[in-house]
């Protein structure tokens, strides 16, 4: 097995718009409850079911906030 797909959220860059959550086919992104230093509530990866489809990457308006790896 080549490895498991996953996504990373740069929580300092995330503005908490939640648009990635709406496009994720597996609902594996959730909104956090802590504020980042820009006073947004960043999303986070729940840790499972990511297929590495990349839809969240394109739906995210912030160029550097989401990184998806599909091994």
């Amino acid at each position: 097995m080549a490895g498991v797909p996953y996504l990373e959220v740069a929580s300092e860059l995330c503005k908490g718009c939640e648009l990635c959550m709406g496009v994720c086919p597996k609902q594996c992104i959730a909104i956090g409850d802590k504020l980042n230093s820009a006073s947004y509530r960043p999303v986070y990866y729940t840790g499972e079911n990511c297929t590495g489809c990349g839809l969240c990457f394109y739906a995210c308006p912030e160029p550097g906030a989401i990184r998806v790896v599909k091994p």
Partner: peptide, 8 residues
């Protein structure tokens, strides 16, 4: 491997 990340 495919990585979706901020383009250069």
């Amino acid at each position: 491997m495919k990585v979706y990340e901020k383009p250069n």
